[in-house]
């Protein structure tokens, strides 16, 4: 296996752990940017069929959208909604880190058991880290209460799925990948607008309070 891929993947794990252990929204947005850029680089490196134009296209597209556009949109949403720095997690940061370590062990175990037909030999760490990213995103969605962190967790989830898909990118039409990126972009855009309106209407973006919108007569 190539040391450079390993190093990039280890940095990827560290961004996930930082997401789990940090309480600052600015850090979250920076980590989204780092993950986007890392995925762009990994797209080029993980391929085994040699360099092809479509991968370069995919790499540039995903870096531009995930590494630059999303962080900018999220930063703008944060500014408009006046979100305070602290994220008020349901589970504390140290607890989250410990759970993160368990999730990593779990994903290493799962991917060692899972027979996945990959085209050719791929790096040992790609699949476990993809699983780990997906688990991290699910955990973040449950344990952080601000609506904007739900949006961020959604992006992290997509990053995990994208990482899982990189080894198979040679088999799938590039149109599907680009379509996914477009869907995601529109999704993030819409969520930013919704956040703004929620904040204007209720002056809070805490998802726990959204349940009070339920019709109480039912």
């Amino acid at each position: 296996m190539l040391p450079i891929i390993d190093s990039l993947l280890i940095i990827f794990i560290l961004t996930n752990l930082l997401l789990l252990g940090s309480g600052r929204l600015a850090t979250y947005i920076q980590m989204i940017a780092v993950q986007g850029v890392l995925l762009g680089i990994l797209t080029v490196f993980i391929q085994h069929g040699g360099f092809r134009l479509r991968f370069a296209l995919l790499a540039i597209g995903s870096t531009a959208i995930k590494g630059i556009l999303f962080p900018l949109l999220l930063a703008r949403a944060t500014r408009l909604v006046h979100i305070k720095r602290e994220l008020e997690p349901v589970i504390g940061y140290t607890g989250s880190l410990i759970i993160g370590a368990f999730l990593l062990a779990l994903s290493l175990w799962i991917s060692s058991r899972l027979p996945i037909p990959t085209p050719g030999k791929i790096d040992d760490y790609v699949l476990p880290i993809a699983f780990f990213t997906i688990f991290t995103a699910c955990f973040l969605m449950i344990s952080r209460t601000k609506a904007i962190t739900q949006v961020i967790s959604y992006i992290v989830l997509e990053n995990g799925i994208y990482l899982f898909g990189i080894p198979f990118a040679g088999e799938a039409p590039v149109l599907i990948e680009l379509g996914l990126l477009l869907d995601l972009t529109v999704g993030i855009f819409v969520m930013g607008i919704i956040l703004y309106h929620i904040n204007r209407e209720f002056s809070s973006v805490n998802v726990n309070e959204l349940s009070s919108l339920k019709d109480s007569r039912l």
Binding site: G21, T94, A101
Partner: peptide, 21 residues
């Protein structure tokens, strides 16, 4: 301080888990 030291544990644990493969 505990969070800083948990960071050290996580780094070591990460190396341990990746090293086991």
């Amino acid at each position: 301080v505990p969070r800083f030291l948990m960071g050290a544990v996580i780094f070591a644990l990460l190396a341990f888990l990746l090293g086991l493969r």
